[in-house]
Every structure is written in C-alpha cells, then in structure tokens.
Amino acid sequence: MSRYLIIGGICGLAWAAALRGWMAQLTTGVPDSPSQVTWLTLVLILLPGVAVGAVLGLSAALRATGRAGSRWLILTPVLFASALVDPKIFIDLISSGMGGGSLLVIAIALSVGYVLTRTHWSVTRALVAMLGAFGLLITFGMGEMAAPLGTPRGMWVALYGLALVLLLGMASVLPYRPLRTSLRAHWWIALGALTGFAWAAGLRGFMAQVMTRDGSSVTWSGTFLWILAPGLVAGGLLGWAAYLCRHGGPRRARWLALSPFVFAAPLVPPLVTLDVEGFLVNGIGGGTIGVPAAALAGGDALAGRRTWLRALASLLPLASIPLWAATASTIGGPELGLDTSRGLWVALYYWSLLAVFALACAIPLRITPEGRVGEAASSSRVISARSSTP
C-alpha cells in the first residue's frame, strides 16, 4: 500500500508541476498578464497534485488487491478546487469568470472517469460524454492564447494541455470497480503513448522555464520531431512492457527498458554528418543521453536483481538533486535559486519528471514469463480468506 501511495504522490507532483508549466505558457501571448510564481503555487497547485496522486494510488492499490474503496474516492479530482481558496482567484472567478481553470480540469476528469467506467450507453452517459468532449475542446483551444494554432508554439501548448487533462481523466477511472479482468495490448500501448507524450510535453515546458533568460523557441522539427515524437514512441513501448509485465513475456522483452534512448534521436543527424561539436552545443547532446541514462539507472535501482548493482545505479539519478541545486542559478539566473518560489517549483518540476521516468523504466525489468496476473488473483483470494476469518 505504501508503495502505491508514494508512486501516486510522485506522479501527482509531476502532473501538477507540468500543469503549472502549461499555465505559464498560456500567458506568453498575453503581455499584460505575465505568469507569476509565488509560494501559493506550491500550496494551491503542487500540494493538491501530490494529494490527488496519492489518493489515486490508494485506489490503484485497492483495485489491485480486489478490495472495494469508498465511493467518495471517485471525487478525488475535486481536491484541485483548493486553488479557489486564494481570495484573488476566487474574486476573479466571481467577477470576470477568470481563474476557473481548476473547475474545468475537475469537470473533465470526472466526466472522462464516469464515461469510461460505464458498460452501456444511456442518456446520462451521453450527456456526460458531451460535457467531457466540450471541456477537452476548450482545453485544446486555449493553446490559441499562447500563439495561433497554426504555429509550432500554439499547437504544442494546445496538445500539452489536452494530453495532461486527458491523462488525469484516465487516472480518474481507478476509484471505480473494474469493468473487465484485463485490457488488450493495444490499449496499454495507447495509454503508454498518451503518458509518454504528456511527459515529453511537460519536459518541453520545463526547458522553456530554464531558457526564459535567453528565450525558448518552439519549432516543428526541434519540438515535435525530436521531443514529442520520441516521447510518444517511448511511452508506447513502455506501455507494451506494462502489458507484458502483467501477462508474461519472453526474457528478451526486458530490453524494452532501453526505450527511453529514443530521445537520443537528435544525435543521429550530427553523427551522420560527423558534426561532433554541433550536437554538444548548449548541452543539447548531453541532455538527450543524460536524461534517458539517469532514468534507466533509476529503473535498475528500483527493479534490478543484484543489490550492489542497484546501489551503484541509484547514484546517477540521485546525483541530479544536488547537481541541479548547485547549477540552477548559473543555468537560468538567480530566479531559479532554490530560495525562490519559482526556483523551487522548477526544481521539483525537474526532479519529479526524472522520478516518473525512472519508475517507467523499471516496468520492463519486472517482466517474467508467467506475468503478474496469477499473483494478483492469489492476493485477492488471500485477502478474501482473511476477511472471512473470525
């Protein structure tokens, strides 16, 4: 149970930090309304994200062991309404309708969760589906605030928000009773691809925050081809690994742990043209190798087989914590120092993204020929037997 809570909390933190990054991008096209990060950002956005993730992790634990949770867990996304505790946000919502983004996110998440857990279509399900689809359309259209949707920046911001909100809606299914015993492989691959795309879009949002001082340009090739597309592919492969982890797969399937190195695709053109210095400019080449390497090492530290190798592998991802703390101000200026609200948010943003990546890389390392379905069924029978024992 504790592992589910911790993993859920980390994922919730990464999601909320990425959502704040999306909110920052929405204001880039509105000069009179700059995005300001305060200490309330940590309290009203990141902290609820941790809470929502932990509660959804609890729901996942209950589902995995065949136990039914409280019906109130279905309302978990409502915790994001805590942002309205801020008097300024609440007044803006009442007076001008601004600041209601948290309500939109909640409505979409609850709608998607409800629709995906119904077995038959009804008037209620159709109306809720229309509400959720309308909310997702609004979220996508909000990308126009950053730039026209026909531009790389506008399309990235639009897809960024859409992927994050849709992902929360998918996670909102967890408090419901499962409709079927298992999903087919293509559903796992699709869910992994969505998660990978959302992660890559969030990573691009983090990069934009780091490059604020020098300016961050979004291009069709640089952002979509070298960041978002690899995230989509790597996520799909890791989703397939999650399916094999549950249902069993060959030992060679553990090589799917190398999927993150799809992000090293930007190195191919410079290496083909022997432009060695080109891919090291501004640390871009090092990042495309360093981030997947740290994630893979973290995955091995979590799910490796030999204790001494796990301890050794943990050094690389753990080194990112003091390394970023020591170099953040140098990279992005004094405002990225950990003693500032923006600096702490960006640091948590970076660390939680790496942690989620490491958790994903641990999935292929858990693949066994027999899978985990039998283990889950056995756990359910044990719990049922214990509950019936006087």
Rank of each mutant, 00 (worst) to 15 (best):
G374P: 14
L56W: 14
L166K: 00
G8P: 04
G333W: 02
L167F: 13
G337S: 13
G57S: 08
G21S: 05
V218F: 15
R305H: 11
T327G: 03
L302H: 09
G298I: 10
H120V: 13
L365A: 12
L149P: 09
L166Y: 04
R180M: 11
V85K: 01
F80V: 03
A360P: 02
M98I: 07
A347H: 02
S33M: 08
P31E: 08
W15L: 05
L162A: 13
A377Y: 06
W324T: 01
P369S: 06
R184Q: 14
L225A: 14
A147E: 13
S378M: 14
L166S: 05
L232T: 10
F80K: 00
I108D: 03
W345K: 00
P266V: 10
L203K: 01
V382Q: 12
D300H: 13
R213Y: 03
G97C: 04
D300G: 06
T307W: 06
G99W: 03
T307F: 05
V37Y: 07
S82G: 14
V233N: 01
S182Y: 11
T139P: 01
R63N: 12
G231F: 02
P390V: 11
L316I: 09
S70L: 10
S172P: 02
A200K: 04
C245Y: 07
V157Y: 11
R67N: 10
G290R: 03
L79M: 09
M130H: 06
A201V: 11
G299W: 10
P77R: 00
T119K: 14
R366Q: 12
P292M: 06
W220F: 12
I6C: 01
L203G: 07
L232N: 09
R20F: 04
H186I: 11
V346I: 11
G66C: 14
W121C: 00
G283I: 00
A360R: 06
G337R: 04
F357W: 12
W187D: 05
T273R: 15
P364T: 08
L225E: 10
L203N: 04
